[in-house]
């Protein structure tokens, strides 16, 4: 029963034209990055991961996701969360769902599942396109890490898979909070605006050293630490902290959304 609802939710999301356009936009990112690095040629690729991209196409998916996590992926997650509840309320279809003899908590979990499945799909799609584009433009010889070691292709795929999971988790955490906002309004744009404003404000706050007491509370503080996936051996400390922080955001978002849905008049 619930699997059928899960399936229909994902089908429903995939049928929206803006979802398809969004996914198409996402796969352009790794292609543009690979092309850009390729046409820039040799030389210092810049700080961080950019510096080791030359001749190292397997890093492109990780570089792409790492960059996109700052703005693009939260935006995508917020769109899906906005459509999930606020969008349905706007079309009047949420009313039907709320009065149906289906538990409202179950409704929320169906929405969360749709969000998770679509996030995983989008992130995996970007990674796969990244692997193909990176290998095509930049070539590959296993995967070179930030520590200067070279991993075999199989190990490289494992790292990419691990990073896909980590990024999806962050995305779903943001989406869960966006769902909580989504449950309070009938305007999907409000949800997107609120989520993106929060993410941007968090990142600005993260720039001020004088606010360092505040930084551990911001979900965006956990993003840069995920780069540790590209170190060898992987230090799990920061990755674990970021994931726990995202988990807390997920709990808060889901809890607030559930409270709102339960008390909502149909």
């Amino acid at each position: 029963m619930i699997t059928r609802q899960f399936g229909s939710e994902v089908r429903w999301m995939l049928r929206r034209p803006r979802t398809l356009i969004g996914l198409f936009g996402l796969i352009l990112v790794p292609i543009i990055i690979s092309f850009g690095i390729w046409s820039a040629g040799e030389g210092d690729g810049g700080p961080g991961l950019g510096a080791i991209l030359n001749g190292n196409g397997m890093v492109v998916p990780i570089f792409t996701l790492f960059l996109s996590l700052n703005l693009l992926l939260p935006l995508v997650a917020s769109i899906w969360a906005a459509d999930g509840l606020a969008g349905e309320a706007q079309h009047g279809t949420l009313r039907g769902l709320l009065v149906a003899p289906v538990s409202r908590v179950r409704l929320l979990f169906v929405k969360l599942f749709g969000l998770t499945a679509m996030s995983l799909f989008a992130v995996t799609l970007m990674a796969v396109v990244g692997i193909i584009a990176g290998t095509a433009f930049l070539g590959t010889n296993g995967m070179m890490t930030l520590s200067g070691t070279t991993l075999s292709t199989a190990e490289g795929f494992l790292r990419i898979a691990f990073f896909i999971l980590l990024v999806t988790f962050q995305m779903v955490a943001i989406g869960a909070v966006a769902l909580a906002v989504s449950s309070t309004t009938e305007h999907p744009l409000v949800v997107q605006a609120a989520t993106m404003t929060t993410i941007i404000v968090f990142q600005v706050l993260g720039q001020f050293p004088s606010l360092d007491w505040l930084h551990p509370f911001l979900i965006t503080t956990g993003f840069p630490g995920l780069i540790d996936v590209m170190r060898d051996p992987i230090p799990l400390g920061q990755i674990w902290d970021s994931t726990l922080l995202a988990g807390c955001y997920m709990l808060i978002g889901t809890g607030l959304a559930a409270m709102r849905l339960i008390t909502k008049d149909s």
């Binding site: 922080l245 988990g247 807390c248 709990l251 808060i252 809890g255 409270m259």
Partner: peptide
């Protein structure tokens, strides 16, 4: 409702602990 509220509190407490 209580379970949802407990979830929110756990999340908030978790962030503070972290």
């Amino acid at each position: 409702l209580a379970a949802a509220a407990a979830g929110v509190l756990t999340g908030a407490a978790g962030i503070s602990l972290l």
